[in-house]
Design a protein around this nucleic acid. Sequence first.
DNA 1: CGTCTGGTTGATCTAGATCAACAGGAGTGG
DNA 2: CCACTCCTGTTGATCTAGATCAACCAGACG
Lengths: 238, 238
Amino acid sequence: MSDDKPIHSCANCPSRRTTEWQVLSDSELELVDQAKRMRPLEPGAILFHQGDDAEGVYCIQSGLVGIRRLNVRGDSALIRLSSSGTTLGYRALLSKSPHRNSAEVLTPSVVCTIERSRVTRLLGENPRLGERFLQHCFTDMDETETDYAHSLTLHKKARFLHLLLVLYERVGHRDGTNNFVIDLPISRIELASLIGVQPASLSRLIRDIQAEGLLHFNSRRVRFTNMDAVLHAAGLEH
Amino acid sequence: MSDDKPIHSCANCPSRRTTEWQVLSDSELELVDQAKRMRPLEPGAILFHQGDDAEGVYCIQSGLVGIRRLNVRGDSALIRLSSSGTTLGYRALLSKSPHRNSAEVLTPSVVCTIERSRVTRLLGENPRLGERFLQHCFTDMDETETDYAHSLTLHKKARFLHLLLVLYERVGHRDGTNNFVIDLPISRIELASLIGVQPASLSRLIRDIQAEGLLHFNSRRVRFTNMDAVLHAAGLEH
DNA sequence: CGTCTGGTTGATCTAGATCAACAGGAGTGG
DNA sequence: CCACTCCTGTTGATCTAGATCAACCAGACG
């Protein structure tokens, strides 16, 4: 490491430049460091429950976290995926209202918790921090509106392909023969929940997509055998 | 009127206490007044187009405005309704990015436009204004997430009933015999677009709902003949 | 009076739900 | 180590919500 700070200090966090905290001065960042608690979490761990009051904000250093919303009837929808460099739970904290969603760890993750009072103090001292949270909300909003508009207008197949493209951007890579490849971080059940479809239907969707030669599925590995066709079908088919 | 300001000044605006501008001082409000342009608009008028740069913000004094989003394929979804007391277009302005949605007047409305430079100036002078916009974004976000989760988990019938309940809250009233009544402000086509259904399917939905004795439809007038059953079906049926 | 748009209906088709069966791991306890 | 159970994922059979397309009607409007 390049300085005398502890390895796990925010100053050395790999996501430092992408989080809200990028606008803090060194001394302000030091305040975050003191108040933060870093912990490794296994799939199934809950960062916060829908309805809970905000205890602080959660900074994902690595891993994947699912944002769930229970509807009036009690069934849950997975409405968003959050990954490293993302701060969660700021809405409840800043609006002084209970969490609207739950956050559940989906893959082994490292998450820092920064307690509430420290965040409010920093917000008071550095107005640029509030500004960053505002921009974050705008980004989330745009993404959710896009997904919502898609859910109103697109078929499940197009939505699933769209989801795979988004996942490719996040965790995809090239394999030995330079093909586009994703190693899916989540189960079929959760993929199904993200597009609002039954697991059995997703299974058939996958079979059909594979039969059309768009993609090749092997357990959790997805290979794009015809990227152009995927791009076309995600936006233009049917 | 209670003071010597012009009738159409913001100080006399009926929505004054519900808009973002409630946090402004009298002299600051005066600045809004000078820079605002108030105009009556007919259905079909466009406040801004998806992709346009922000020219200012739009304050709905009366009427109903639809927020539309075009998806990748080019078909439009009506993702939100905005009515009096709501400010539109602030996201594009504050994020310095193009409008993500279009805003189209749906019923005869009165809308004030406050030009960009004046808004930015006020934001610099009064930090509470930015805070209000942040809260506004949170509210929109919550609503959109709710709708999104519903679109992932509920059937069209439940979503339609839910929409009618929301409309009742906004424009509903009691009729002579004390029944709950809505005079729908928008066409069937637009109702259909809000829940992501074809007009023909909405027509059948309405027929079925009426046959079940939940509601009575007569042109644009909707009477709740069995509110309990509607509440139940909106959340619990199927 | 013709034209247009909004709304309803009929006939038909299809995407996706539902329910049940079953296969493959992964974990647990004897 | 095996037996048992639990959970994920896939498939088959069937059903249904909703799409699609066309016909048709009523009111609005030039």
